[in-house]
Design a protein around this nucleic acid. Sequence first.
DNA 1: GATGAATGAGTGTTCATTCAT
DNA 2: CATGAATGAACACTCATTCAT
Lengths: 195, 195, 195, 195
Amino acid sequence: MAKTQTRRKDTRQRIQDTALELFLEHGYEKTSLREIAERLDVTKAALYYHFKTKEDIVLSLFDRLGTSLDELIEWAEGESRTLEIRRALLSRLNGVLTDNASLFRFLQENQAALRDMRPASDFRDRMKSLGGLMADPEADMIGRIRSISALFTVYFGGFALTDMEGTMKEKRAALLQVADEILTAAHDQEPGEPA
Amino acid sequence: MAKTQTRRKDTRQRIQDTALELFLEHGYEKTSLREIAERLDVTKAALYYHFKTKEDIVLSLFDRLGTSLDELIEWAEGESRTLEIRRALLSRLNGVLTDNASLFRFLQENQAALRDMRPASDFRDRMKSLGGLMADPEADMIGRIRSISALFTVYFGGFALTDMEGTMKEKRAALLQVADEILTAAHDQEPGEPA
Amino acid sequence: MAKTQTRRKDTRQRIQDTALELFLEHGYEKTSLREIAERLDVTKAALYYHFKTKEDIVLSLFDRLGTSLDELIEWAEGESRTLEIRRALLSRLNGVLTDNASLFRFLQENQAALRDMRPASDFRDRMKSLGGLMADPEADMIGRIRSISALFTVYFGGFALTDMEGTMKEKRAALLQVADEILTAAHDQEPGEPA
Amino acid sequence: MAKTQTRRKDTRQRIQDTALELFLEHGYEKTSLREIAERLDVTKAALYYHFKTKEDIVLSLFDRLGTSLDELIEWAEGESRTLEIRRALLSRLNGVLTDNASLFRFLQENQAALRDMRPASDFRDRMKSLGGLMADPEADMIGRIRSISALFTVYFGGFALTDMEGTMKEKRAALLQVADEILTAAHDQEPGEPA
DNA sequence: GATGAATGAGTGTTCATTCAT
DNA sequence: CATGAATGAACACTCATTCAT
């Protein structure tokens, strides 16, 4: 006979899931703790047993993601900034984005609300790092913009492709290919000269 | 006879300016009408004389912008979808973005908060229209993604370039050039074949 | 025909009165804003129109009292510290205590709750000043304690006499007389020598 | 065989000590059980193993003190109300106050919070009894106030003398001497006649 | 054009307390 | 002896909004 689980073991995880779910549905500010609690069929006070504040729930959501990005940056910093490496970097970033798609969407759609919270500023720093690692250190403005554009293609592309036909896998692959073209152009041509 | 009104300019306009200012500082949800009123040194009730609701202030902010985008779309729909036209479309879009930079930033940073309001959904529709106008109707997935990528380079580039050296004008021009390259690549190559 | 006063003019004053009333009945911490609002038949939000915080209500209660004590201290500092003056000081203090009896009781009974608030610390400072003004600057320990004892007789006596028979006026006069004796003893005797 | 318990002393006792400590630091109402538990490095639930309620902790603190006061009263009731006895009564009260100084301070600073609890009302009754035992049954109002004043000198003096120079022992002795003077004055003079 | 006074519905948060394990 | 998980009731406070003047 299965446990009639009066006391759940995984409440913390369930709170995180439901919170993200609702944050995506209505936005961070418009999602109240009452709402989260009701959907979980627990009391608000139970949320406070597991998390110190509402903000704390958000912080916890970003814990794993932060680590993934840091590892990516750390890896890239250890490599020389060749075209190959930059391609690989984009590809890996693509992987992280795919794995944490909803978290990125949450971040993207709630920038103002999250601005003063750690995850947001950390994320800005990390994206800046990645931007730096993508760009040829000797590149001119056009060159640097190409790198950023490639990065953005991978990053924001994910949001835009939701209602294009095809599987996510295909679309992600296509994004990566276009980003790759942009980068490659930067190498084939005299820097800064239009084709 | 000149207006004898000592009244400080146009109060309605001042409310709009201050509201946008604060929305950008703290985000839409975290900006209260009390705050707006205090910064303007009027009472909250005065705001209600000029605008029916808080949401109404936002709507009014987007009035002009909506028209600009509609005109742009209307123009593009009247033209054939050649490379020239698409280049021109990007260039004009760039102009609109430059003229309404802070409004776009507000929209971008408060997507979740504005989601259920007219400006946001209208904007989504318009961007979708522009996306459609950019893409060769017979293009394959890669081709369509190239068009979108060019569009995104112009659109999101604006946000990313704030702390790159150079004048805004130079940077905007460079963005446009890169976007142009992406588009052109789509024409120079066998569609879908990497460079 | 009398105004059916839908909008009251004196709400601020009414809030202060009711708040003090309830603070005395149940103590500061156990009195909720809901309770105050209900007794006044207004909403909690109305309280917040008139006072920034719950603490602010308390602060406002002590405004007048603070001034009275400061004036008393200022007066005493301008005089030489003779027996006559000290007697007069006690008498005037007695007056202030009588006029603000309930406020003093509130302070006395809620010391812990008010400890971190301005009125309480200001009050401590003022009582210390009065203590200093009562004591002969050259007095020994016994002498200084006599002065303090006289002060306390007047101060705390008020609380203790509530259920002794006689009118408040008589009792207050008697307190003052005993305080006077204590002070006088300090002058009749060799300082520090028991009678 | 000695107790093998490694358990840190008596947990019940430690709870009492920590509770009183915190009650004095922040006041009764502002001290939460969470705070007490944290300072003791146990869980809140552990407190409930030792005490039925928060109030119960307070009650337990006053257990010993109540007995001491009752013994004092009982002794005094068995004696005739001579000056000698009253002097001795003050002296013994002084002893009890000294031994339980922090408990008295707690009571004094949290009157409103404790008002509806047994210790507070019991304490009021006992002080009233002591007041009665101090006063000459045939004394007039002035006479009775003198007795009370002597009592208060001993009682409240303790709180006021914290920041006077000298050892606590000296100061307590001086307080007692002044209280004695006040009492004696009541005997030397024609009752009710100023010196 | 604008204000002073107020409301109703909500918010995040804290607390003393309970109880199965 | 003690804990982990949870609750129900409350709390101070804020907000967008209304309306008579």
